[in-house]
């Protein structure tokens, strides 16, 4: 084996198409023997949320934002041509037709391949979320120093 290269991916966006791109690269990199860390921040947190979060300790603004935002891998919108969800549905049915894995399957595959999931604590606080709102696969809750520490030791760093 060659030396073990590393990849970091900042998942900033919470849209289905962008999440698919992030997980496509993550899974491929892991298959190439590279160490992969995905850092979920801002809207990207939606990708690793279990679904809609409850009221929790949210203030009114956070609660409304949570109500309006789509959360959970199965609920994400397309960044273009979403058409009230019809675009997303069509995209999913096309992906099925062409035997492409769904986002949920890509997430499971990434975990099986040892991809690390890090969730940004600042964004979590900003949106009034709690650790319990996230899927169990999240390895750690951390901040920018953790990301930069990983990124400075990696040869591929992406922001999606």
């Amino acid at each position: 084996m060659e030396s073990k290269d590393s990849v970091t991916i900042v998942v900033f966006s919470g849209e289905l198409d962008k999440a698919l791109a992030a997980f496509n690269i993550a899974n491929t990199a892991a298959s190439m023997g590279m160490k992969v860390s995905m850092f979920f921040t801002f809207w990207g947190l939606s990708v690793i949320q279990k679904g809609k979060s409850g009221r929790g300790k949210k203030d009114t603004l956070q609660y409304m934002m949570g109500k309006m935002n789509r959360s959970g891998a199965s609920k994400l919108k397309l960044s273009k041509m979403n058409m009230m969800g019809m675009g997303g549905k069509s995209m999913k049915s096309l992906m099925k037709k062409y035997r492409m894995p769904s986002l949920e399957e890509m997430i499971t595959l990434a975990r099986e391949q040892g991809v690390e999931f890090v969730a940004c604590t600042t964004s979590i606080a900003l949106m009034g979320l709690e650790k319990g709102d996230f899927i169990d696969e999240v390895d750690r809750f951390a901040g920018a120093s953790t990301y930069l520490g990983l990124a400075s030791e990696s040869n591929v760093n992406l922001f999606i």
């Binding site: 491929t28 298959s31 023997g33």
Partner: peptide
């Protein structure tokens, strides 16, 4: 056959 990127590579890696 019928699989697209990244699946052939992921499956190769597993196999």
């Amino acid at each position: 056959i019928g699989l697209y990127c990244p699946m052939p590579i992921v499956k190769t890696s597993q196999q």
